[in-house]
C-alpha cells in the first residue's frame, strides 16, 4: 500500500500548480502548452475515477456480443475484425448500443465538455 497522498491527489496537485501558479508566469506558446498539459492531467484524473467501471462494463458487453471472454484489447480487435469482414452485421442487436455506451464513456473521460457529448446527453 502506497503512502498518502493518493495518485489522484498528486495529479490534482500538479494540475492546480500548473493552472494557478505556473501559467500566469508563462508567455506565448509555452503558456499554451502548459494549459494543454493541465488539460491532459484532467484526462488522467477522470480516467482514474471513471476508467475502471467503464472498462469492466465494456468487457461485459463485448463478451456478450462476441460470445466468448478475453482481454479488453483482444475483444476490441476482434470486434473490429468482425465488423470489417462482415461476420458482425451492422444491424446486429446490441452492437449500436454497445458502441454508443463505449463512446460516451470515452468522451466523458477525454473531453466531458465536448459538444457532441452534450448532444448525446440531451437524448437521455
Amino acid at each position: 500500500m502506497m503512502d498518502q497522498p493518493s495518485i489522484r491527489e498528486l495529479v490534482e496537485a500538479v494540475r492546480s500548480f500548473l493552472e494557478t501558479k505556473a501559467m500566469p508566469e508563462l508567455k506565448g506558446h509555452t503558456a499554451f502548452h502548459a494549459r494543454v498539459a493541465a488539460n491532459a492531467l484532467g484526462i488522467v484524473s477522470r480516467e482514474l475515477e471513471l476508467g475502471g467501471q467503464a472498462t469492466s462494463e465494456e468487457v461485459k458487453r463485448l463478451t456478450t456480443l462476441l460470445k466468448h471472454e478475453g482481454s479488453l484489447e483482444e475483444l476490441n480487435r476482434e470486434l473490429c475484425k468482425q465488423i470489417r469482414d462482415g461476420r458482425m452485421a451492422l444491424e446486429t442487436p446490441g452492437l449500436a448500443e454497445h458502441l454508443e455506451a463505449s463512446m460516451r464513456d470515452k468522451i466523458a473521460i477525454d473531453q466531458p465538455n465536448y459538444s457532441g457529448l452534450r448532444i448525446a446527453k440531451s437524448r437521455g
Binding site: 491532459a40 458502441l99 460516451r104 473521460i109 477525454d110 473531453q111 465536448y114 457532441g116 448525446a120
Partner: peptide, 25 residues
C-alpha cells in the same frame, strides 16, 4: 504534449459518429 493531447481527441469524432449514424443527426 500538444500532439499527445490531440491523440485523445479521436473520441470527439467517435461520439459525433454515434450522433450522425445511430441517431440521424
Amino acid at each position: 504534449v500538444e500532439r499527445a493531447a490531440i491523440g485523445r481527441r479521436s473520441s470527439e469524432t467517435e461520439i459525433d459518429l454515434v450522433n450522425l449514424i445511430f441517431h440521424g443527426m
